[in-house]
Amino acid sequence: MIGRLLTAVLLSGVLAGVLISVVHEFTTTPIILHAELYEGGGGEADHATLIWTDEVAGGQFYLVHGDEVHEDGEEAWGPQDGFERSLFTLLSNVITGVAYAALLVAAFYLRGREVDGRTGLMWGVAGFVVFALAPGMGLPPEVPGAMASEIGGRQTWWAFAAAGTAAGLWLLLLVKKLPFNVLGFVLLVLPHVVGAPQPAELGGPVPPELSAHFASASLGAGLVFWALLGWIAGLSYERFVTRASTA
């Protein structure tokens, strides 16, 4: 059984990861690259350089920073801009796709019902709410250079919001017993009552217009990703798990 489940996971995860890379290339990535022109903000540690550009109307100062430099002077490896960077982004998107596909197919199997392309798509929308919309309400998608609180606390809250929303939606929508529904509602709301860690001060170097555009582009691309993943995972599950397990 695990082999059939993994077939559905790999097929849907890799496909969704590749397809969303194309979507990102035209939606979020250009905004990331634009925001990186402002990133760094003139801090001493990041070797900010002041350059003049006439490309933007009126001319503006942009702050750019060179390669990240460690305290010990060694540069951390990073992909070269251009093809190499796109290749690693594709690779990381495929891994993200497979990771989410594994969680989604685990949910299909735990539920124990038939899934096809249509119901898979609905599961996918639920995945979007769990892993993008709910965490994003407290921690909006960030452009590089955005002000934010310490990373560990944000990651913990992100996981808390995703887990609470997943368990909450399950108990609210898939269990037909009132006490469980009430518990589901509480789990759904709890992360937002607790609240995500917010930065102590606001006012990062990236213009708010760019940040706002990125947040909506990221959420929109997230919905596309989850709809694709849910649809393909539903079809794969029907083909490789439901039918195969009965043959």
Binding site: H24, L139, E142, L219
Partner: peptide, 14 residues
Amino acid sequence: NAAHDGRHSFAFPC
């Protein structure tokens, strides 16, 4: 660094 753009696009805390 390898996953940088993907992390931002998927809105992981970065």
